[in-house]
Amino acid sequence: MIEITLSFLIFLIAAYGLIKDTNVVKSIICLNLLQTAVILIFILLTRPSGSSLPIHGFSPTAPVDPLPQALIITAIVIGASITALALMMTVKIFHYYGTLDWQEIIEKEK
């Protein structure tokens, strides 16, 4: 229970980081932290259902649920591909605008 609260605290700190900063690269890192925090919550929530590795016949105690593990690997890979795409767009923005500050980029329109 206390571990889930700690992970949720990481979620809130990363969300605060998205609000406070104005650097594009830091926003993308905070988004990655957010996704890692959610995966931490998932793993800590499915832990009490078992206490050994999800391999058949490995140990006499009940194994942990293997289905969430497949879902989580997919979520990690999706997060990595979004990071790659966002960084590619950041490089282009730097070449056009010379700056990496959200307020200069978005609010100085037309």
Partner: peptide, 27 residues
Amino acid sequence: GYAVKAGLFYLLYNSFGMTIFLVGVII
């Protein structure tokens, strides 16, 4: 220039939303 700005904003903001959706799915 305008299109790349718009694409980056769209991507990051919607990813944040989808992360919140994942929390709901987990629970």
